[in-house]
């Protein structure tokens, strides 16, 4: 008997997908960060940013783009990296239980010597580890480019931002996993996961526009994570704890839901 058989299958059999996303993130990093000295840090760029409508700079988090950490926060952690990580995490989360059930394979797995709770937990662990792996790749590459691209990021702040970055993606992924496990449908999982990611982003962008809609920020996981620009200022650790705790709660909910219902019916 091998330990954690379901985790092993979910983690190792998807190595192509994991590698693909890692390469995508690496490409985004190598595309954006080396450009900082010529774009973000230049006076011309600051003039251009100043010329943009302030609503737009706020929505895109470009208000801090003139500093290395701010630039990294806005372009990588806040935009392209966030997008890629969220898509990867949501697609894995939706496939973990809902997708597996919809394709008819979960039935055969459950007919074997496994518990449903175990299926959910091992697959959630595989999701977690893949997200952590991607976040570690991002963190390492940013640190690698920190000197050459003159970003001036503090290691402590980078690590904190990475924890939030992973936690944010994981929240969307576990939402997808949970809704997939409750409904047995991959599409519903995808919709839920994408909803958490997109609404979080939109609530942040809109909530930053004026005092009247500031309350939207409270509903935005994106804002919880990035409200204080962690790459520049260090992590908001309670926010990080919230993100990870809600993810854990969603996994527990998924396990309870799957335990209690008919599969493949």
């Amino acid at each position: 008997m091998t330990a954690l058989p379901l985790f092993r299958r979910a983690f190792f059999d998807t190595w192509r997908s994991t590698l693909g996303w890692a390469l995508g993130l690496a490409a985004a990093i190598f595309l954006y960060l080396p450009l900082y000295p010529s774009i973000g840090g230049s006076a011309q760029m600051q003039d251009m940013i100043d010329a943009l409508p302030p609503e737009m700079t706020k929505a895109l988090n470009y208000d801090q783009i003139a500093t290395g950490p701010g630039y990294t926060q806005a372009t990588l952690f806040g935009l392209l990296g966030f997008l890629l990580m969220t898509i990867a995490s949501v697609s894995w989360g939706a496939a973990a239980v809902g997708g597996d059930e919809e394709s008819g394979q979960l039935e055969l797995t459950l007919a074997h010597g496994v518990r449903r709770v175990q299926v959910v937990l091992e697959r959630a662990l595989a999701l977690l580890l893949r997200v952590v792996l991607l976040a570690a790749v991002v963190c390492s590459l940013v640190w690698l480019l920190n000197g050459p691209a003159q970003l001036g990021i503090e290691l402590g702040h980078l690590l904190g931002a990475t924890v939030l970055f992973a936690g944010l993606a994981l929240l969307s992924g576990t939402a997808a996993l949970c809704v997939g496990a409750v409904t047995g449908r991959r599409t519903y999982g995808l919709a839920a996961g994408a909803g958490v990611g997109v609404l979080g982003y939109v609530f942040n962008a809109v909530g930053r526009q004026s005092k009247d809609v500031e309350w939207l920020l409270n509903l935005s996981p994106y804002h919880w994570a990035y409200g204080n620009s962690p790459v520049a200022n260090g992590a908001d650790w309670p926010a990080a704890a919230w993100l990870w705790a809600i993810s854990a709660a969603l996994v527990v909910l998924a396990a309870v839901a799957l335990e209690r219902r008919d599969v493949g019916a």
Binding site: D13, R16, S103, G104, Q105, E107, L108, A111, H112
Partner: peptide, 11 residues
Amino acid sequence: YLPGELFLAGR
């Protein structure tokens, strides 16, 4: 157990 409709995916 052999299910009535067998789905085996994955590479």
